[in-house]
Amino acid sequence: MLEAIFMAAIRAGTPLLYATLGEIFAERSGVLNLGLEGLMLAGALMGFVVSHITSSAWLGVLGALLIGGVLSLVYAFLTITMRVNQVVAGLALTMLGAGLSGYYGQAFIGKTASQFSPIYIPFFSDIPFIGKVLFSHDPLVYLSYVLVPLSWFYIFKTRWGMNLRAVGEDPKTADTVGISVFKIRYLYVILGGMLTAVGGAYLSLAYTSMWIENMTAGRGWIAVALVIFSAWNPLRALLASYFFGGVASLQLRIQAMGVAISSHLLMMLPYALTIVVLSLISSEAMRKRIGAPTALMKPYSREERE
């Protein structure tokens, strides 16, 4: 029973984790990307379509990476070069992703594609309880296990990570010491978009194996909240994602067991939590306290002086 709940938490948390990781990179460089929902949808469809055509789920992931990269390149151009308001551009990206995927996806509803299935890992999968909970998943889950500590190490322990954080904290100073603010922001916004799109592809290639219009069902927004919840730290992002995934699947399980709590209340849980977190972050003081990148949402321009 407990085993099944933890397993479900990881399954449901993995798409959130990819999106949260991606957004951490983008936000660490000082760019808020509210387009996660759109990127995930685009990734979910692209991943599914490529896998449908080529019969290779890995090529599907590659397709998701590509579309995530292209869309966030557009987003980067708008917000970094054109200095468009990031909230507005992010919402636009969400609508674009939802609209495009809905339109082009119509032909793929009800189709099948090659999907990821759980892989047994010798020794690890045999450990009682933990083996079942952690090591009875598909390759994309295992990949995320590796990506999390790697991202943490990269952001906090390497020179490149320091540059990234410097650009997000104080782009002017970073510029003065010879770090290219634009290059770095472009790089991490694109990288972030690619990871987010893989989160979407997880939904259509591993969690289920189908394409459905709007199948992300608000997960992109939850990921935006999770970034704050995790205080821009990949390790905490892992816990936060699994926690949210756990809450979401636990409520389904409670219902299925026939416990008499209103299903409306239970279904509200993850979203209520999201609203609370997002309201907290909207205050400037709170953002500083939990360590938000100082230059977040502030477009950088060399000519401008404060």
């Binding site: 289920t208 199948m215 699947s249 389904l252 299925a256 299903s263």
Partner: peptide, 25 residues
Amino acid sequence: VLGAYVGTLNDAGKGKEVSLSLFNQ
């Protein structure tokens, strides 16, 4: 009879999750 509610009409992931827990019981 056991039953459950997904909450949306387009979340196949949740639909699958909740059905798995029904089948598991």
